[in-house]
Write a protein that binds this DNA or RNA. Sequence first.
RNA 1: GCGCCCGUAGCUCAAAGGAUAGAGCAUCGGAUUUCUAAUCCGACGGUUGCAGGUUCGAAUCCUGCCGGGCGCACCA
Length: 578
Amino acid sequence: MSLLTELRARFAVSLESLGEDPKRWIDQVRPAQSPEYGDYQANLAMCLAKRFARSPRQLAHELLARTELGDLCDRLEIAGPGFINMRIRDEVLEARLTQSVHDPRLGIPLRQQTETFVVDYSAPNVAKPMHVGHIRSTVIGDAICRMLRFVGHRVISDNHIGDWGTQFGMIIYGWRHFADRTNFEKDPLGELGRLYRLVNELAEKDPAVAQAVQTETAKLHAGDPENRQLWQQFMPICLQEIESIYRRLGVTFDYTLGESFYHDRLPALVEDLRRRGIAQESEGAVCIFLEGFKAPMIIRKRDGAFLYATTDLATLIYRMETWQPDWILYVVDHRQSLHFQQLFAAARLLGYDKVKLVHVSFGTVLGEDGRPFRTRSGETVPLEALLDEAVARARKIVDQNDEAKPNGPELSEEERARIAEVVGIGALKYADLSQNRTSDYVFSFDKMLAMNGNTGAYMQYAYARVRSIFAKAGLTPEEVRARDGSITLKTTVERRLGLGILRFAEAIDLALEDFRPNLLTNYLFELATLYSTFYETCPVLQAETPELRQSRLLLCDLTARTIQKGLELLGIGVVERM
RNA sequence: GCGCCCGUAGCUCAAAGGAUAGAGCAUCGGAUUUCUAAUCCGACGGUUGCAGGUUCGAAUCCUGCCGGGCGCACCA
């Protein structure tokens, strides 16, 4: 149990004995606002004073008298209006840290109640190049899945790709009129991308082309053999493209059930909803009228075609029937919030009232000009090029750094390339994850790829420094862990680092509470900063005594493992040297 | 017109109704014979858009206003 959970459990007992519901108040026990107040604080007295007709300070005294804390804390103070400030005993910190040394989970408990989560993220439209706009959903969704799994939940990640839309009409039209077969033989993906961009541009200028594209799309949907055959031919190429990007990003999915997977189910779904009286015909379209919404949710157009909403409804039903999830998370752009409100309302109308449906929304990716990246202008930076640029910039820094080493360069070409890949991709992901997801994201190469400050590289560097100490000592972490010896928190700096390590669990809990990976990055940055300070002020290999040297080695090892695991939960790797 | 989101240091952003609103970048000053200087230490920088309200306590909740973004019947 984490320190915070433990403290809360203690206060919960006293709250209950006072006849209060602990659940309602217990989050008032929390980490201290500032180290000068102690390690943790309880703000309960101020909240409850009125209910007990006491002064907050008086109630704080009563709470303290009722709460068993002596074994955990050695300093308990009532401060200001009635804050209870708590300082954890050094022995407790030391014992827990020493215990974590041999725990692969670093003291992070598995959830007692595990639930099933379906997580819907990434969802690119295939057949057009992935661009920077796809990165947020992919990276945030992946991080959420990793965190949920780590604490023990059952997670089903499902990439609901757009593989049945107008973009195929464009490619089919392009194939018929402008295909370069020779180029297609050599570079199928490049040729399809070229056709997409070409037709997209033409369709914007020429309504006749736009109409023709619609016709091709409709033919595909209606089962036209030739268009179906082309679709069959193009799909593997499209999938290959997104696969290669996912591989590079280290992102995986349990399922990739795109729009085409649900296509056959849509007519029956609409009929069923009509029979049940959930959907009605209006102005030729089939609609679900939802209370509290001005516009209905249209599930079949006047011309008989189905829509995004129809597919999403079919998808939701399939997921409910197949996996019986407790949660479905949709990691999607905030611009679609109205759509999801309607979808969720419709789901409740269908009787799915227990499942928790959450639109994990995020801000738009903006260009330097403050305008959203366009998906149809053809002017956007392809994601692949973006990754290359990130890695190339990282490579420059790796080269620079290695060549400046006092005893000359240490890294081989292969190592440099591998480090640049991990650092470059990590920087890109970190820049995204470290922002509150609800904010708009102003994309900037310089900002994303900066290697200073609150960046992925800063944490990777802290990790590499730990590993360097071990390399210098000629020791593996396993050897150090296997030795006798425990962790002693001799100085304030060590104590802060130790406490920081033990707070990992809190950070994960917090990040999962509202599906906000940036709360985990905040924690990791703090931890890496604590380590840097430790690194400056506490000699490890030259420590005064062998016991202290061992203790500090263990502390270094725990820090490195915490950073490594934390970054891993964000989908970011580490390197031994950089 | 209606709805949702946002407005915090020069810039990019944090902050769980709690104490003196924090980081990074930038700027300025300092630290390297000692485990990686991709580092550390320090300084400067704020009427949290404005005005009310609720509360022991508001960047956070409520109301109004100002400014910005997004979305609102047959795109996804």
